[in-house]
Design a protein around this nucleic acid. Structure first.
Length: 848
DNA sequence: AGCACGCCGACT
DNA sequence: GTCGGCGTGCTC
């Protein structure tokens, strides 16, 4: 595959009997339509739908893009440019994927380019880098323009070496040793000394290991004996050779020698001399060669280590039930309490699907995709398992992509974006923790929900989908009631572990009685002390990071605010900073009030950091660790905190959402929810659902392996209906209560919501645009379907003023289709107004 | 998304 | 007088 090309486009005169092909391509840009390029005739055989091609887009840009369609219809309005180069002989994006991507773009109101951008690992996209080359007509003696010293340097570098040598911009910068080298390139171009071109590079590089093997002529026994004789006295070389022969049974198996041995195995061995290895290579005893290897190595031996487990009776029954329901329904919800052993059931079903020859996709939220679960699946599925994680490098992602394409990986366990992988014969899709809001991508388009995309993909490919959760999304459970989804419930915890006992503690009462110890009620404090004394562990959940959400001057009332967003700055004690949690703006903590000079600066409210600080004082004997966005930013810190907790090096773990899922530690006997009210009182129709899920999920961390756990929820309002359901762990009752609310107020699952956000640097312009958009929507959809415009609670983020419009639609497909067309039309109408050219509009379908 | 073309302020 | 700011329009 060569990626260099020249700009002289072939212009064959099309003969009458020649077929001229055109390709519609998807550019990796947020453009609403496809662009049509002409296929050079002699490359007609190379066009593949789903393959990458290189085209010139605009005056300067060269891009790689995906062929979406090939046809013979020349565009009428314009002259199509030629495709410059074909990168792939076979599609990297398959037909089923293209179909799915079109559905995503359509459903989530975004462009195909945006979907492609999110879907392809960036290493499958090509990067273009500008290069300079000496102009062929340039001759130093005849050039009419004088060159500066710097310019001469560049010319000298370009004229040494072979004809037509080129340099990248970066290299020119390095040569001149300055950052501002662009002016010299520009000047050289004006003087016709150099010209520019774009060079596209494939960013994916396979992993290569250096290997060695015994030169062929020594394989015969006699030759080898001769060799030993020759090397007599060269002890180091003999050592190396002995080690090689020990590891590679040259006699028994000549192929073993062909495969060779990793060079590093010899050079980095403790008692061998690396230079002796090199000498043997130099003298032709050993041959060195490169081998492309997978980044996901797996010894065949590992397959032997497969674990065998048997399902419990309850699990067995659930599995049977799921299979039964799959007979009639494509989608089944497995509603199982935390710790019921859903994973074993999944594994069993995956095995069965693989035996039938199909592919399996197993989706997990990012935080739940831990090394533990991967190791477990590896043991069962060995090299057939691909792992798709956002922490992986791009090269690793390309390998998973190609592995799915080639059939090497039949099972993939992955996060949200794994739905974009090139499956073509899915038999089973599992969406674990299906209620998780992290399945929904919020910011850059496509604003998709991986659960819904997975369901659609399964539908397209005739696969069955199993949704799993202890606290199913209300929308999902509703579908089991309508009969669209099947339902299987697992209500008992695996292995005797009972459900934890949940108690409410009234913080208002404690405050009145002045018995609060910082932010802890005496009940929680006592419970912690007794659990710690019993050498058991504690998890504390507080849904706010930092030390305090804001600080306040006691003398003049000043509160520091973010300069870019309409929020107060949170105080982070460890870094001595005030930080904005929306845009990342930060400044040093003040010693005195900049408004009045007072030193009476008080922190108001509390976050995880303050809890950690307080606990270290209040429980000096305990080892307290904090787990939130701030302590897990570094690559392995999350794993480190988990493993410390697992080894019981830490006794108390304080954290945000992160502590609510995936952590299964047998020794945790107490979970504390510090401030339940902040979770319940949230201006959103899903607030109660989220609160219920969070409380139940975090409670599930308490008590495993036969120990009964205890959960203490601190609240100022214990009368809240939702607590009653949480305490009895009664999902059904919660559901019945919640579905009534949804029906009454016209929320999902009864109505569908599309949220439009209008952003502008100027609040007034933004508001005017929002009013116009609302009017246009009302004209098309009717008054009752459109709510707003309204400035959200946080009305300015990153210097953009926000306005929100909420559209409620009936769930009927035909209504939805028409409405989406209307919405796009209204948005385009606003965009086309001169006054609103700078306005940014975003649509979020099914926001969470 | 880039990048070129096109109209108004501080400099050789 | 020009260099260059970034506003808006287009890319097959």
């Amino acid at each position: 595959m060569s990626l260099t090309f020249d700009f002289v486009q072939p212009q064959p005169e099309p003969a009458a009997d020649r077929i001229t092909l055109f390709a519609d391509v998807i550019l990796p840009l947020p453009l609403p339509k496809l662009y049509t390029y002409r296929v050079p005739f002699e490359l007609n055989d190379h066009v593949v739908v789903g393959g990458r091609v290189i085209v010139q887009f605009g005056a300067k840009k060269t891009l790689s893009c995906i062929v979406a369609a090939v046809h013979e219809n020349p565009p009428k309005e314009y002259q199509a440019k030629y495709i410059l180069e074909f990168i792939d002989d076979a599609p990297v994006v398959t037909q089923p994927q293209l179909k799915l991507f079109r559905w995503i773009a359509d459903y989530y109101l975004c462009t195909l380019g945006e979907v492609i951008n999110a879907a392809l690992p960036s290493a499958l996209k090509l990067s273009s880098e500008s290069r300079v080359q000496l102009h062929p007509a340039f001759e130093a003696e005849t050039s009419p323009y004088p060159l500066s010293e710097q310019e001469q340097k560049v010319v000298a570098a370009l004229s040494t070496g072979e004809e037509g040598k080129s340099m990248t911009f970066t290299e020119v910068g390095e040569l001149l040793g300055i950052a501002s080298f662009h002016k010299y390139i520009k000047s050289l171009m004006q003087k016709d000394v150099v010209f520019l071109f774009e060079h596209l590079q494939d960013k994916y590089s396979p992993k290569v290991v250096k290997k060695v093997r015994l030169a062929h002529r020594f394989i015969a026994e006699a030759a080898l004996e001769d060799l030993f004789a020759q090397l007599a006295g060269r002890a180091k070389q003999l050592d190396v050779l002995m080690r090689y022969l020990q590891k590679v049974p040259v006699y028994q198996n000549e192929h073993a020698n062909q495969r060779g041995l990793e060079k590093a195995y010899l050079t980095s061995a403790p008692h061998l001399s690396p230079s002796a290895v090199n000498t043997l290579i130099k003298n032709g005893v050993l041959e060195q060669f490169d081998q492309i290897v997978s980044r996901f190595p797996l010894d065949e031996d590992d397959a032997e280590a497969k674990i065998h487990f048997t399902l419990s009776e309850a699990q067995q029954a659930a599995r049977q039930d799921i299979m039964q329901q799959f007979q009639e329904k494509d989608i089944v919800l497995l509603h199982g309490v935390t710790g019921a052993g859903k994973t074993e059931i999944y594994i069993d079903l995956i095995k069965q699907a693989l035996d039938g020859g199909g592919q399996v996709l197993y989706l997990l939220p990012e935080i739940a995709l831990t090394a533990q679960i991967v190791t477990r699946l590896m043991r069962v599925f060995g090299s057939r398992l691909g792992v798709y994680h956002s922490k992986f490098s791009d090269n690793e992602r390309v390998e998973v992509w190609n592995g799915v394409l080639s059939g090497r990986f039949q099972v993939v366990i992955g996060v949200r974006s794994a739905v974009f992988l090139p499956f073509d014969s899915l038999a089973l899709v599992i969406v674990d923790e299906e209620h998780e809001s992290s399945y929904k991508q919020y910011d850059p388009a496509p604003r998709y929900n991986a659960r819904e995309v997975a369901l659609m993909m399964a539908n397209f490919q005739g696969a069955k989908t199993l949704l799993g959760s202890a606290t199913p999304a209300v929308e999902t459970y509703y579908q089991t009631r309508t009969g669209r989804y099947g339902l299987v419930s697992l209500t008992k915890r695996f292995g005797e572990a009972g459900l934890p006992e949940i108690e409410l503690v009234d913080t208002r009462k404690s405050r009145e009685q002045k018995t609060m110890l910082n932010h802890f009620t005496p009940e929680l404090m006592q419970a912690m002390e007794s659990k710690l004394a019993a050498k058991e562990q504690v998890i504390l959940f507080q849904n706010r990071r930092g030390y305090s959400p804001f600080i306040n001057c006691l003398d003049c009332g000043w509160i520091p605010k973010c300069t870019n967003c309409a929020v107060s700055l949170s105080y982070h004690k460890h870094s001595h900073e005030l930080r904005c949690h929306y845009c990342g703006y930060h400044e040093r903590m003040y010693v005195q009030c900049p408004a009045c000079g007072s030193r009476n600066l008080k922190t108001v409210g509390f976050g995880t950091e303050k809890l950690e600080d307080d606990l270290k004082v209040m429980l000096p004997q305990a080892n307290v660790q904090r787990m939130d966005l701030d302590t897990t930013r570094a690559k392995n810190s999350y794993q480190q905190i988990i493993s410390d907790f697992e080894k019981q090096a830490t006794n108390v773990l304080v954290g945000t959402q992160m502590v609510t899922k995936g952590l299964d530690f047998a020794n945790v006997s107490l979970v504390g929810i510090i401030n339940a009210d902040s979770i319940i009182h949230y201006p959103d129709f899903r607030a109660h659902e989220r609160a219920f899920q969070m409380f139940v999920q975090v409670s599930g961390r308490a008590g495993r392996k036969g120990k009964k756990g205890r959960v203490i929820i601190q609240t100022g309002d214990p009368e809240q209906v939702i607590f009653d359901k949480v305490i009895r762990n009664d999902y059904l009752e919660f559901y019945e209560y919640e579905i009534l609310q949804r029906r009454e107020h016209g929320y999902p699952p009864f109505m569908r919501i599309i949220r439009l956000t209008v952003k502008h640097m100027d609040a007034v312009v933004g508001e005017r645009a929002a009013i116009l958009l609302t009017q246009e929507l009302v004209d098309r959809l009717g008054r009752e379907a459109v709510l707003g415009p309204e400035a959200p609670y946080i009305f300015r983020i990153r210097n953009f003023y926000l306005q929100e419009i909420t559209i409620k639609l009936s769930r009927e497909h035909t209504v939805l289709r028409a409405a989406k067309a209307d919405i796009l039309e209204a948005m385009n109408l606003v965009r086309d107004q001169k006054e609103f050219k700078q306005v940014r509009l975003a649509a979020d379908v099914d926001p969470m």
